[in-house]
Write a protein that binds this DNA or RNA. Structure first.
Length: 279
DNA sequence: TCCCAGGCTCTCT
DNA sequence: AGAGAGCATGGG
């Protein structure tokens, strides 16, 4: 268990296990974090700007964060109250998964804002991570709120007023029409994002797939990264390769309860090492 | 120049 | 229900 100290308007997190900043913030689950040359990470989440770093002794420091903001937002965002040591232990019952866990150590599943996450993974389809980040940045700069130095992610209500032509500056290609449809269905209430975490995974997936451009993979990313559905298992090209070459098509039983978390470790392992394409 | 990227839709069997 | 082309854009 970790310990929190609030000092000089900063939050110090002592003794946190399995929390690697580059792995967590740059593993392809979130697209608005970046690192400077001093190892300081900055990003925007939940309409808040945050800078953080990990010190040599393992302490994680969140700068300019009140105790209240930490308790009400960042603690859940970084999934701090989940015991990843225990989960990794469980997954490591399988040797291949153990190797993936070791390579991808310290990845935590972020609990992100549902509409932002949905749009981000609509944009992600048939796309690469660098370009996904650029499109999202332009989306925020053009249609988000300027908070003085950073931009929020636009709301569904705001985006529902826009047309495909309005979204041209994003250079998001064929995905623009999907973003418009998502915004309209969320803003109108036809798709209620905020109850998806409380209903069964299959029902939640079907609900999201009412939106044009949302198939099983995009839906599962949204459910895993913003709706606490730990068993959602997004199957992208990398995971399909990994399932075929490393696991013979099926996840081992020890991964059932935390399939989504296992997925993220496998994704990072497979993509980062490229071992699957070179051999 | 071609290929690929955290896929999905549409069409044709 | 299953396979395959097409889709916007940009980096390697």
């Amino acid at each position: 268990m970790y310990k929190i100290i609030s000092k000089n308007n900063n939050i110090y997190i002592y003794g946190i296990e399995e929390f690697d900043l580059p792995h967590t913030l740059d593993c392809g689950q979130a697209f608005r974090w970046s690192c400077n040359e001093n190892g300081l990470w900055s990003g925007v989440a939940g309409n808040k700007f945050l800078t953080l770093e990990k010190l040599d002794d393992g302490t994680v420091v969140l700068y300019n964060v009140t105790q209240n903001d930490f308790n009400l937002f960042w603690k859940d965002y970084f999934d701090l109250d989940r015991n990843y040591t225990k989960i990794v232990e469980k997954l490591s019952q399988n040797e291949t998964l153990k190797a993936a866990c070791e390579y991808s150590h310290g990845i935590r599943i972020l609990n992100q804002e549902p509409f932002e996450t949905l749009c981000s993974f609509i944009i992600s389809q048939n796309n690469n991570i660098g370009r996904i980040k650029g499109i999202i940045q332009r989306l925020c700069e053009n249609f988000g709120e300027n908070k003085g130095g950073y931009y929020t992610f636009p709301t569904a209500q705001k985006m529902a007023t826009l047309t495909v032509e309005d979204l041209a500056p994003l250079r998001s290609g064929f995905r623009a029409k999907y973003l418009v449809d998502a915004a309209q269905k969320v803003a109108s209430g036809e798709v209620d994002l905020y109850h998806l975490r409380y209903i069964p995974l299959d029902d939640a997936r079907n609900e999201l797939m009412k939106i044009k451009g949302v198939g099983p993979k995009v839906a599962d990313c949204a459910l895993l990264f913003s709706h606490h559905h730990d068993r959602a298992f997004p199957k992208d090209v990398w995971i399909k390769r990994a399932m075929d070459t490393l696991f013979g098509g099926e996840l081992p039983d020890c991964a059932t309860d935390y399939a989504g978390i296992a997925q993220q470790y496998i994704f990072f392992y497979a993509r980062d090492t490229k071992l699957l394409t070179n051999e």
